[in-house]
Amino acid sequence: MEKGGKGYSLPSKGLKSSLKSTPANDASIKGKDDSSAKSKRGRKVQFNSEADKFDFLSKSNGKLDAPAAKGNLSKGGKGDRISNIGKAPSTKEPQPLELKVEQEIPKNAKCLMHCEASQILHGIQGQMVLLSRDPTVKLPVSFDKALHYAKTGARYTNPQSVRQVLESLKKHGVSDGEICVLANVCPESVDEVFALIPSLKSKKNMLTEPVKGVLDELANLKQQE
């Protein structure tokens, strides 16, 4: 569920910017606004006159305002984080969005490079022709899309040798997920590698040389094909 929330965070960014002025104004007009706005419903009787006062300020967007205020003020951290995610790519925030494949998938999963996936899926497609005597079994649309995607994304025809070359980065602490992204993206320069995979930046000094070597080898492989 949390993922869903984050997925939506971007669209709401546009929304937020239009709302941004309202909580800010409220805050500057009355410092205590957010707390009383929250308690408004609960203590309406006691603060009736005051409640009226900012009702007229925020009635039109009162519904929207309350969550916005909550998001920005009471959970200020979260609001900030969302805007950071939005800006991270352009402004090099201290915590750029890092790829954390290992933490998000089960232990028994193995990352596949596009060229490997393409080989496997191709094999399955071949089998399906034989197995399709049963008309009720058919491959879903997503299979075709995935196969096409893997095929167009595959930069190399020989997954084993690519895997072998990239595997050498493992002893420098590069994770499986990062290796796969490297193979799929097929970067041309060392700078490109560190720009696209910010999680490697922390080990930049140590990795520059090996990455350079690997990129050269990959370029060789590609030429041979």
Partner: peptide
């Protein structure tokens, strides 16, 4: 074989 996009990918 599964396909999953990751944040940061």
């Amino acid at each position: 074989v599964v396909f999953r996009p990751f944040k940061g990918e």
